[in-house]
Amino acid sequence: MVQQLSVTEFLKKARSLPIIDVRSPGEYDHAHIPGAISIPLFDNEERALVGTKYKQAGKDAAVLLGLDLVGPKLVGFVKQARKLNPRQKEVLVHCWRGGMRSGSFAWLLDTAGLTASTLVGGYKAYRNAVLESFSEPRTLLILGGKTGSGKTDILKELARQGEQVIDLEGLAHHKGSSYGAIGQPAQPTNEQFENLVYAQWQQLDRKRRIWLEDESRNVGACFVPMAIWQQMRTAPVAFVDVPKPVRICRLVNEYAGIDHGLLVAATERIRKRLGGKATNDALAALAHQDYATVADLTLAYYDKAYLHGLSERDSSSVYPLVMDEDNPVQTARQLIEWANTQAESEVLR
């Protein structure tokens, strides 16, 4: 018998069982539960046909058309599902609203000897849970620093040293600046970005602090969920202050040799903010592969923009950590010491 699970129960089981998303490929590609496998009941064209039939001739006619389309695929569905969990023969299934698509698919698998559970309310219920979860108060610490300070590597080192971390730029496939998409995979949709953030947000221990990088609201085309963003803006900031020459060296190592056209386009995108002369000088330096000069010129804009954002915070919540070298391991150690001191002072209050 097919069991129906709440979002909480469904995701708890998903830690050890495969999820089958039976929505159309278009729905899945737009956004899905991280880790879910797409086995669509209807392809994009078939879904459109069934929807049109429903509007024109009613539910019964749409169901009959659906059966005609799905009939030849039934054996294939069962074979694909069995391969996902051949030993336990148990899977999770969901569609958009927990209706006919997932119910029919789960019934088929149950009939074929598999154990299938469905998600009450479907993907729509999951999305409601995603958005609601971000309002839950957490203890956040923000890692700040000017462009080129190595914040991503510091976050990774914090994680290696036992801290809880959410790498928003890593999830968004973007480093935040005009140059941020260079060398990165295509960005997820904003909805999928939220799903990815939620997957980590829910897994982390609610009683322990979480480190996030100081970000603008948007990371490329993705937007940090508003409820998390609001918590980030009031959280303490550890501002890692690294000398400009050290930051230039890091940026040269990251971007030198990358597609010249992409670097030119990224520089042109900030022409108005950088200024005409600085932009032209940066483009001339690019033409001569003088990446250090390009970094030096563009940092004039990015440093000013970052410090402006930092000035809008309560100064008493900003902790400056001056580092003379690019050393993520040592920086992470000092940040943990500061965070522990912060936690102790909170307890004593």
Results as ranks from 00 to 15, higher is better:
Leu65Phe: 02
Trp96Ala: 12
Leu92Asp: 10
Gly71Val: 03
Lys79Arg: 14
Trp96Ser: 10
Asp110Cys: 07
Tyr54Lys: 02
Ala57Asn: 13
Asn85Pro: 03
Gly99His: 01
Trp96His: 11
Arg47Phe: 02
Gly76Tyr: 11
Ser102Asp: 15
Leu108Tyr: 10
Gly66His: 11
Gln56Lys: 15
Leu84Pro: 06
Ala106Arg: 05
Gln88Thr: 04
Ala81Ser: 13
Val93His: 13
Val50His: 11
Ala106Glu: 13
Val91Asn: 12
Ala57Thr: 06
Ala81Arg: 00
Trp96Gly: 03
Lys89Glu: 14
Gly66Met: 09
Trp107Gly: 06
Lys83His: 15
Tyr54Val: 00
Trp107Tyr: 15
Lys79Ala: 10
Ala48Lys: 15
Glu45Gly: 02
Lys53Ile: 09
Pro72Gly: 09
Ala106Ile: 01
Gly99Ile: 00
Glu46Leu: 01
Gly71Met: 03
Val78Thr: 12
Ala48Glu: 15
Leu69Trp: 12
Arg87Trp: 15
Lys89Ala: 02
Arg87Tyr: 13
Lys53Leu: 08
Lys59Val: 11
Leu67Ser: 13
Lys55Cys: 07
Ala62Ile: 04
Arg82Ile: 01
Phe105Ala: 00
Asp60Ala: 01
Asp60Ile: 07
Glu45Ser: 07
Glu90Cys: 02
Leu74Gln: 07
Leu108Ala: 00
Lys53Met: 13
Leu64Lys: 13
Val63Trp: 07
Val78Lys: 06
Asp60Cys: 06
Gln80Glu: 13
Gly58Trp: 14
Ala62Glu: 10
Gly51His: 12
Ala106Gln: 07
Leu49Met: 05
Arg47Tyr: 09
Phe105Asn: 10
Lys79Asn: 14
Met100Ile: 03
Gln56His: 14
Phe105Glu: 12
Pro86Lys: 04
Ala57Tyr: 15
Pro86Phe: 06
Gly99Asn: 06
Ala48His: 14
Leu74His: 13
His94Phe: 07
Gly76Cys: 04
Lys59Trp: 12
Lys59Met: 02
Ala62Gly: 02
Lys53Cys: 10
Met100His: 08
Lys53Asp: 08
Pro72Trp: 04
Leu64Ser: 13
Val70Ile: 00
Val50Lys: 09
Glu45Phe: 07
Phe77His: 02
Val91Leu: 06
Lys79Ser: 11
Lys53Asn: 08
Ala61Ile: 06
Glu90Tyr: 10
Gly51Trp: 14
Leu65Val: 09
Leu108Arg: 04
Tyr54Asn: 01
Ala61Asn: 01
Gly103Ala: 03
Gly76Asp: 11
Ala62Phe: 10
Leu69Met: 07
His94Ser: 03
Gln80Met: 05
Val91Pro: 06
Leu74Ile: 10
